[in-house]
Amino acid sequence: MDTQNYDLPALFGDVKFVCMGGTKYRMREFADYMRGILDLPRDTKLVNLTKHSHRYAMYKAGPVLSISHGIGIPSMTILLQEVIKLMYYARVRDPIFFRIGTSGGLQIPPGSVVVSSWCLNGTLEKTYDIPVLGKMRHIPAYFDKRLAQEVSSAAGLDGFQAYIGGTLAADDFYRGQARLDGPFCDYTEEDKMSFLKKLAGLGVKNIEMEATAFAAYTREAGVRASDVCVTLVNRLEGDQVTPSKATLLEWQQRPMLVVGKYIKKYLSYQNK
């Protein structure tokens, strides 16, 4: 998409919420879910607006843009920066960004939802670190506190617990997350447990692979944002995800439920 061949304000000017997640299937499901709870027409097929890119999928459901971002910080930040540009060219005012996904939990029951308030990188600093012009930049990685509280309260009585806390964003799924089940492991079970307990003592509730950069770039852009993830395992009890496929599928709906409730409530107040 570009500004010469597309009327971006006409296409995206009504967007209020940008929701991002790992896979195109999850984000298509989220867009369809939002059509339902916002009472939007569902008699037409959802269209992937970026299908010709063969990289990401983007669906629009009224004021909600639902986009896949792949796995990890590099993939996510490419998309995030392009969407920030898209919102600028579409003249969208004060959009709210969400990232929904899965994670490993720390000292909380599997199936819980974590709303991140701040993030740690792999060296346990509250920054997203990126080399620019040969020098390392350290960008603060904090989320909007008020938004985190509002989103957490939207969980309501849905049969699962929601927590606000810190998130460790790792650059690697195995050693970066202190796992013992990867192809390389040069530390012991005791080393792993000491590290995970240290994280828990710092207030970290979950571990995933995107939150620091998501927090840093949205904050730098002046955009309110929230990272909402369900936990699939308590990492203090093991590395393997053991629940059944049916249970995992149900758990993966939970961030959608929380964010969907928040969006519906927000729009209902705006329309009064």
Rank of each mutant, 00 (worst) to 15 (best):
A61W: 01
L157P: 07
A178M: 12
T102Q: 02
P41I: 13
L40M: 12
A225W: 03
L249K: 14
L180D: 04
S75D: 14
K51D: 07
T242F: 12
K145F: 07
L49Q: 05
E210M: 13
K85Y: 02
D7A: 02
A213W: 02
A178W: 06
M58R: 01
V15N: 00
M1F: 11
H138T: 13
Y25E: 10
Y89S: 06
G176D: 01
E125L: 04
V132C: 03
A10M: 07
F98W: 00
F184M: 15
M58L: 06
M1D: 07
T188S: 02
E210N: 11
R146K: 05
Y142M: 14
V258C: 08
R93D: 05
Y187D: 12
L199P: 00
G201W: 04
L267C: 15
M87W: 14
P63C: 03
I73H: 01
G72W: 14
G201L: 04
S66C: 07
L8Q: 05
L157G: 15
T231P: 10
A90G: 01
A141R: 00
A162V: 04
A200H: 10
I78F: 13
V233Y: 06
G156F: 06
A57R: 07
A154Y: 04
S103H: 10
L249W: 08
V151C: 10
G104R: 15
M256A: 14
S112E: 12
S53L: 01
G156V: 03
L157W: 11
L249N: 13
G222I: 04
M34N: 07
P131L: 09
A246V: 12
I130L: 07
G165Q: 15
A10V: 04
A221H: 15
L49H: 08
G36P: 12
L199M: 03
G111W: 02
I108Y: 00
V230R: 01
S53I: 11
Q240V: 15
Q177S: 05
T242I: 14
M34T: 14
M58E: 11
T167N: 06
A162K: 12
A57I: 07
G22D: 05
R146V: 15
F30M: 07
Y6Q: 09
A211Q: 01
G238H: 04
Q81N: 11
M20A: 01
V204L: 11
T188D: 00
I78Q: 05
A10W: 09
G201P: 03
A213H: 07
I108G: 11
I37N: 02
K192P: 08
A154R: 06
T123Y: 02
I207Y: 03
S116P: 07
T123R: 11
L124F: 00
M27N: 03
E220Y: 04
L124T: 15
T50Q: 09
R235D: 15
A215K: 05
T218I: 03
V132K: 10
E189I: 03
M20E: 10
L236Y: 03
K135C: 04
E150V: 10
G260Q: 02
K198T: 10
R235W: 00
D191C: 09
G201K: 14
M58H: 00
G70D: 10
